[in-house]
Write a protein that binds this DNA or RNA. Structure first.
Lengths: 182, 182
DNA sequence: ATCAATTGCGCAATAC
DNA sequence: GGTATTGCGCAATTGA
């Protein structure tokens, strides 16, 4: 139950010494306070068995580093710590970039929405004018703008909303997007 | 990606991992520990990071828990561990959502780009027809469609690219976006 | 077979 | 006062 066992017990003064503290030699002049950040008593981990017991066979670490080459182990840890730090920094950066990407996409979206709106307006105006004049030409002896052909080209009736035979519904498209023209 | 828990392991009992985790409901009745290392040698002190900031006085741990109320301390650690887990899960979730949000925005963008393209095409056609006929009407005795007025409405010359007096440059707008009409 | 990169985890500090 | 977040090192895994 007392998972902690002595070595891990927080009451150890200074730093525990099983470790080497190579990361910063000549430091730790700390009198009483044990960890500011020093290190971990590791309360939970709870491996309470080690009363000098050999850990379960695992990889190569046990035999290699812990028993023999501690130095190797330490070096390995050192390198891994660096790697971890690096990896996390990278992760944080990625996160940041992702966040910016979202803003960027939102902005692009906004611009495009505005563009669509403008184009719709222009189209509307143009069509209206077109229709008006087409009406006027009717019976004037002059070739009518071939409405049918035009409509074929457009893919929809001139009186329809433009787009892809689907409406854009600008009305409801209100303020989903702030200013940002082109 | 990798990892142990992917398979939906409830993280409860003793499969995976190194630690016993007393804080878990469902408790690990597993007497089995897979730790290679008796303890954490805690290789690196890690202090000295952060620009050599002088460590502020410790909190209550030193006086309160570490020396006396170990029980309190353990409970606190238990709760914190749970909180940490929760927080990280939340973080992962958020990340996931963010990722999905990006895809969503990309898709929206794609749709809008296509829309713009279609509208530009329509506009182009319409204007062309318009211009052609305007030419034909010239000298026909019939009222010309009032180009000037129209252009005023549009905000640009009929021969210009539409949009906001800025071109859209469809040509270079190639395949930045796959299919996804509307 | 080796070593960097990732990832879950607990600790401790700190933000809230 | 507590929970929530965050940086850190450890150990296991994955991946090149």
């Amino acid at each position: 139950m007392n998972n902690q066992n002595d070595t891990g017990t927080p009451s150890g003064s200074g730093n525990q010494d099983t470790n080497v503290n190579f990361g910063d030699p000549g430091q730790t002049a700390e009198p009483l306070i044990k960890f500011k950040y020093p290190q971990r008593p590791q309360t939970v981990p709870a491996v309470q068995n080690f009363g000098g017991k050999a850990p379960p066979p695992s990889k190569a670490i046990v035999k290699g580093e812990l028993e023999g080459d501690q130095d190797d182990y330490v070096k390995r840890r050192q390198r891994n710590n660096i790697a971890v730090k690096k990896s996390r920094e990278k992760s944080r950066e990625k996160s940041q970039i992702t966040s910016e990407r979202i803003d960027q996409l939102k902005e692009e979206n906004c611009v495009l929405e505005n563009k669509v709106e403008v184009l719709n307006q222009e189209l509307k105006v143009l069509k209206q004018v077109f229709m008006d004049h087409a009406k006027g030409f009717s019976g004037s002896g002059i070739d009518l703008p071939d409405l049918e052909q035009l409509e074929k080209l457009l893919g929809h009736k001139l009186t329809d909303k433009p787009g892809t035979s689907q409406m854009h519904d600008n009305k409801t498209n209100g303020p989903s997007c702030s200013g940002s023209k082109s």
